[in-house]
Computed example of a mutant assay.
Amino acid sequence: MGRRERNKQQKLERITAAATELFSRYGVDEVTTQQIADHADVGTGTVFLYAKSKAELLLLVHNVKFADAIETGVAVASGTPDELDALMAIVRPIVHCNRVQIENGRTYLRELVFGDPEEPHHREGLALSARVEAAFVDVLRRGDRISETDAAELARAISAVMFISITATVYRALSDDEVVGVIRDQVAVMLGGRAEGGRGAGTAGSTA
């Protein structure tokens, strides 16, 4: 890597670190791009070279956390024989990742749905969402008890339930474990007779 490339990488790292710290401390809505630039000791124009908007900055920062959460969940799921428990092993770290700072998580997921898919950090976030669905499919396809097409459809439904439960205002006051319980209850219904797990910890599962 040449000096110019190293300089660019160092600036990106400073911008990412500054955005991570400020978003975590104050929440994305309370932080300006100028504050991030000042904290990273770069010009505002430099920030926009790496992310065209504050929303893209959030995607840049949160994609790293999302990716780590997915890999953590997949690793646990691989050693979990029960189907429902394995699915929840994937869900649990994703729920936690997106609720450390609830408004940041909600904004991140909203950007994935409604943001510009042509933006590079948005594309990366969508690829991570597809990775989640692929992980669900891997669990659902154990033993070839369900077709690949049906597993993909069910994985999309589980993913939708998970993201809606994370972002829904009605669940905002619940703990992470309670949100996972809400998701577990709904996924158990989707799985029907193939799921052996009982009801989860969600107190609001009956209203989901």
Rank of each mutant, 00 (worst) to 15 (best):
A201Q: 13
A77Q: 12
R25L: 11
G27W: 07
A18Y: 03
V95M: 09
S175K: 11
V113R: 12
Y50S: 04
K8F: 00
D176L: 05
E178V: 04
V137G: 02
R6W: 01
I102Q: 05
R99T: 15
V76T: 12
E30V: 00
V61L: 05
L174Q: 15
V137F: 04
D177K: 09
V100G: 09
V187G: 13
R172T: 05
L60Q: 07
R92S: 15
A67G: 11
D116R: 05
I36C: 03
L128N: 07
G2V: 01
Y26V: 02
E21Q: 11
P93R: 12
A157H: 10
A168F: 08
R106W: 01
G143S: 08
V139W: 12
G125L: 03
A134R: 13
D185R: 10
V137D: 07
E119G: 02
G197D: 08
I36S: 03
G192T: 07
E118L: 03
L59V: 01
R156V: 05
V28A: 08
D176V: 14
E119Y: 01
L174W: 07
T107D: 03
E13K: 05
T32H: 07
G43F: 04
R194A: 08
Q101S: 11
N7V: 02
I15F: 03
T80C: 07
N63F: 07
H122P: 00
C97E: 14
E71Q: 09
C97H: 11
A19I: 04
E148K: 14
L154N: 07
F66K: 02
D138G: 06
I164P: 00
F114I: 02
A134D: 13
D68R: 09
I146N: 06
V132I: 15
V139C: 11
G45T: 11
L109Y: 04
D138K: 14
V161F: 14
V161R: 12
P81Q: 12
A155T: 06
A37I: 02
A55W: 00
L112K: 02
E21P: 00
M162T: 15
T33M: 12
D185K: 09
L140M: 08
S78A: 15
K11H: 03
S175D: 12
T16A: 06
R123C: 00
L126P: 02
I70A: 03
N104M: 06
E119R: 08
V180A: 15
Y171F: 14
F66M: 10
T107P: 00
R106F: 01
G2T: 02
G205C: 06
L112W: 04
S175G: 14
V170T: 11
Q34H: 07
A173R: 13
A208Y: 13
R92L: 11
L57D: 04
E111K: 01
E148P: 04
E148R: 14
T107G: 00
L60I: 02
A204R: 13
A188N: 15
V170Y: 08
R141M: 15
E103C: 00
V61D: 07
T32Q: 06
A19H: 04
G105W: 09
L49C: 02
A77K: 10
I102L: 10
E5V: 01
S24T: 14
S53Y: 01
I158D: 10
G197M: 10
L84W: 07
I70T: 06
L12R: 13
A201M: 09
A18Q: 05
K54Y: 04
E5K: 03
A134Q: 13
A18N: 05
V61Y: 07
A127E: 12
H96N: 09
G45H: 03
T207M: 09
